[in-house]
Simulated scan of single mutants.
Amino acid sequence: MLQSRAVISTPNASRILQQLCKHWAHKFETGFTTTAGRIMLPLGETRLAADAEALTIDLAAEDADKLSGLRDVVTRHVERFAFRETLDFVWS
């Protein structure tokens, strides 16, 4: 499994985490609280952690292509839910 992480500064991390998990709950296996979430997408697994200052996103996928696709999908959705903010995604 390949992994990638981004830590995004935002005071709205919990709200974004919950919106993202609720959005995908109708199609995929998800679980979440106000501070942690997990989403199982066909491309791989997304784990989220929220605190007062940041949203941490951890991704895991079987290969580089799936990991790249998962990064793109998650980034687009987080940006959509945080459209009033300018978020900086730096994947490592």
Rank of each mutant, 00 (worst) to 15 (best):
R5I: 07
I8P: 09
W91V: 07
L67G: 15
F32P: 15
I57V: 15
H26F: 01
D63Y: 02
F81R: 06
E53V: 03
M1G: 15
A61R: 06
L67Y: 13
P42Y: 05
I39T: 00
S92D: 14
I16A: 14
T30C: 12
N12W: 00
V73E: 12
A25Q: 15
W24E: 13
T56L: 15
Q18N: 03
D88C: 02
A52E: 05
L20N: 03
I8V: 15
R5L: 07
A54W: 01
L20E: 05
Q19A: 09
V74N: 02
D72R: 15
T46M: 05
A54S: 07
Q3A: 02
A54M: 04
Q19K: 15
L55C: 12
L20I: 04
T75D: 12
A49S: 10
V74Y: 01
S4P: 00
L55M: 10
Q19T: 12
R5E: 08
L55R: 07
T30G: 09
I57H: 08
F89Y: 13
A6E: 02
F28E: 15
G37L: 09
L43S: 09
F81A: 13
G44F: 06
M40A: 09
M40I: 04
A64P: 02
A36Q: 14
F81I: 12
F28G: 11
R47F: 14
V73F: 02
T30R: 04
D65K: 13
A13G: 09
Q19Y: 04
W91R: 07
T46R: 01
R5V: 05
G37M: 11
R38M: 04
H26A: 13
A64I: 04
R15I: 02
H26C: 09
R84K: 13
F83W: 01
R15E: 10
L41A: 11
V73A: 09
